[in-house]
Amino acid sequence: MSAVPALGAERRLVEAASRLALPVALVAVFLLFSALAPGFLAAANLQSVLVNNFTLLSIVAVAMTFAVSAGGIDLSVGTAVDFASFAFVSLVLAGQPVPLALAAGLGGGAVVGLFNAVLIAGIGISPFLATLGTLFIGRSVQQLLTNGGNPVYLPPAGVPESFHLLGRGSLAGLPVPLLIAALVIALAAVILARSRFGRVVTAVGIEAEVVRYSGLPLKAHLAATYVLVALIAAVAGLVLTSTVTVYIPNSGNAFLLNAIGAAFIGTTLHRHGRPNIAGTVLGVLLLSLVANGLLMSGLNFYWQQVGTGLLIFTVLALSFASRKV
């Protein structure tokens, strides 16, 4: 309450330092690999970091950020990725036009989101358990749809050219997947930080009861959040499918843990420790750079995961330890 001024200043300094953990780590990693790994700095390599490592994870992590903002988590983001991919591939395979198939893909993701919305907003199950259940049910559903988990390949000949646009196209010299990621990030940043919806979602995450006591529809916001999360994740599914021209059942789960990690690392960037899109994106960038840098520096391929894990751990430890009261 009545802290000595010097102490207050010190405290502010510590707080500022904890916010800097992520940007400093990013710069340090960048400099380190520039020195250690020949070829890391090459434009071609950096572009490959963005296209191969960054794009899909950033979209999924942005989706996750909305769930975390609302005070929850979504373990079934990968399921939304998969369902979108399955719907997209199935319709293309059935000879439907690509735009319709894309819409169906978004619809596939939305199904997962609606299911979560019913569980979380309707019944009141905690998001962790609800989305864990969705994840498990989603697994079986996918395996049933694919005769026990067989990939659905698209015949190279029969696929319309427009199918590849999302994953492999380029516009004005820039790869389309990257443009899509940029668009998703920009829209998400505006929605979360500037829109009325984003404001209420943030308030829900901080103190859900205050939202209800303020005469705002709490359940509607919770439901909309989880549908939005699934829709954004579905975009990642569409880009992924367009790149690899195959639907592999239960492959979306690969993004889950890194997306959670990035969203939480990102909170260290915010003045009040709130989930935020910029932080999430920097978190994804950090993870992508480390993965690529370790690869380029000729270190054993498998050290990547150790490095990533240690880095997440350090950033979290620094930021949590400095928040001690």
Binding site: R199, V200, T202, A203, I206, E207, E209, V210, V211, Y213, S214, G215, L216, H272
Partner: peptide
């Protein structure tokens, strides 16, 4: 717990409703 959100700002609390 119900009246104000302690981790929202004065401004955010004021306009919440």
């Amino acid at each position: 717990r119900h009246g104000v959100a302690l981790d929202l700002s004065v401004s955010e609390n004021t306009t919440l409703a």
